[in-house]
Structure formats: C-alpha cells, structure tokens
C-alpha cells in the first residue's frame, strides 16, 4: 500500500476542510477501501477518516415515523437496534461477518455502491433519502450504475432517512466466500405501494424490478410473479453464477421475499 497522510477530524466541518486536497479520500469503516488500497487500486494522498465524528453516528425515530441512521453507524449497531424494521435488521445482520459488521458503515456502503452490496437494495426499495452536507438525494436518483452515485467531490453522507414499510423482507442468495449477494432482493410493502429492489444481479448495479412491483401491487402473492420473465441480458455473469442463473435467482428470491415479508 502506498503511504498517505491520515486525518481523523472530530466534526463534519473539520472533515470538509480536510477534503480540500484534490487527492483526499474519505474513509468510513475501511472494510472495502483498505483491501482496495492494499491492492493499489486506490492510492489517495490523504485519507480523511470519518470514524471519530460522533454527530454522524446513531439511529433515531423521526416524528413522521421514518428512521434516520447516521452515515457513520456500523452494521452491528443497525442489527442490534430494536426500532429498525425486519428487512433492514436481517440485511444488517448478514453483511460480511461479525468483525466486518463492527467496522463497516451504512454511509460507506452506499457511497461505494458495490453492485453486490446489500444496503443499496434497502435504500432503493424503501425509497430512502440520502442526506449529505449539501442536499437531500432520493434513492431513486442516487444510484447511477456500478460503483457510481450522485455524490459529488467533497460530499459526505451524513445520514439516511428510511420510510418504514408495514411489511419488509431481505432475501440474499449469498456468495459464501465473500458474503456479498449473488442476488439480493429487498421488498418493501407500504400501504399503497410495493417496491422491489434487486442487488448483485445487474451489471448496472442495484435496480427496481418494476414488472414485479406492478404484479404484486395488483395481487400480493408469490403466484402473481409466475408469468414474469427475467432476461439474462444485462445480468452479471462470473465464476460464481452465470447471467442466466442470476436472472433465474431474481424471481426465486423475490418469491421468497413475498413469502417471508413481516
């Protein structure tokens, strides 16, 4: 790994000042970025750690019933919080392993937008709002393809606001070595709307499966998905699963999400 200057600001404003250097990079829990730097796929001259910023940590219930999770909140803290809805708890409990969950953060996961990461599916399915130091970005506008987001240089995810669905489920077909999703399906059932987000499957990263949403809005049952066809075009194909297999799994895992929504 190439060396860098390490900065650990205690406030968001200090972090923004530390980011003025063009080559500066934000560091969340480091569970993706540190391995990436070891491979020299990233070599920032300055690393600005967000882990000492207390104002970016924590989970709170808002007056409108939504839940806000600080960008620096670890997966372990989300998994252990009794206010969180079931799909999001399942998701947080099954990211990586126990040690990774003690370091990795929701802000880091969303900002990285790995095409097989779990959190993007929850954010997109629930219609969450990503709150940065500059603006609020709806999840529908946030994810812009594999490892691409609407974030601009020097923008920090301060928190994420999740509307709470009455029923939810996250179903992950796991790649047992990496613990990432080969296919992950997040289902959110609001009173008037069902939203389905798929991660792990598509080359463009997380996406909404609109046909399934329409079918499930008409009739919330596994059977209503029977006639839908998922094409392998645009699906990821690699040594773990072919694009045909991923396309197949999208429907299988969505059915499981319908069956297990709670």
């Amino acid at each position: 790994m190439y060396n860098f200057e390490f900065k650990q600001p205690k406030t968001v404003s200090e972090a923004l000042s530390a980011l003025v250097n063009d080559e500066a990079q934000l560091l969340g829990g480091g569970q993706t970025l540190i391995p990436t730097m070891k491979q020299r796929l990233a070599s920032p001259s300055t690393l600005v750690s967000l882990t000492a910023i207390e104002e970016m940590k924590g989970i709170c219930l808002n007056d409108d019933g939504s839940i806000s999770i600080g960008g620096g909140t670890t997966h372990a803290d989300v998994a252990a919080n009794s206010n969180i809805f079931s799909g999001l708890i399942t998701l947080a409990k099954n990211i990586g392993d126990a040690a990774v969950r003690n370091r990795g953060t929701i802000g880091g996961s969303l900002a990285n937008n790995d095409p097989a990461a779990c959190y993007p599916a929850a954010a997109l399915s629930t219609g969450a709002v990503i709150i940065t130091n500059n603006r609020e970005i709806s999840a529908d506008d946030f994810f812009r393809g594999m490892f691409e987001t609407a974030l601009e240089e020097g923008e920090i995810i301060l928190s994420v606001r999740f509307p709470v669905p009455s029923l939810s489920s996250y179903q992950k077909f796991i790649q047992p070595a990496s613990r990432f999703a080969i296919v992950g399906v997040f289902l959110s059932n609001f009173e008037n709307e069902i939203r389905i987000a798929i991660t792990g499957a598509a080359e463009e990263g997380v996406y909404r499966w609109r046909e399934a949403e329409v079918a499930l809005n008409a009739n919330f049952s596994e059977g209503s998905l029977n006639d839908l066809l998922v094409e392998p075009e645009g699906m990821i194909g690699d040594i773990h699963a072919s694009s045909e297999y991923r396309a197949h799994l999208v429907k299988v895992m969505t059915k499981r999400a319908v069956k297990n929504a709670s």
């Binding site: 390490f6 480091g30 391995p35 690393l47 040690a99 990774v100 003690n102």
Partner: peptide
C-alpha cells in the same frame, strides 16, 4: 480472521484497520 482482536471491546480484524484509527 487470524488477526481478530478487540478494540474498545469489539471484535475487529486488525489487518483491516490502521494503527492510527
């Protein structure tokens, strides 16, 4: 996980954390 230790009582992988952290 051969490098697993506790930092402030929490299990972490010491190969995926900087000393300065």
């Amino acid at each position: 996980g051969a490098c697993a230790i506790h930092v402030d009582g929490k299990l972490v992988k010491a190969c995926t954390m900087f000393a300065l952290e």
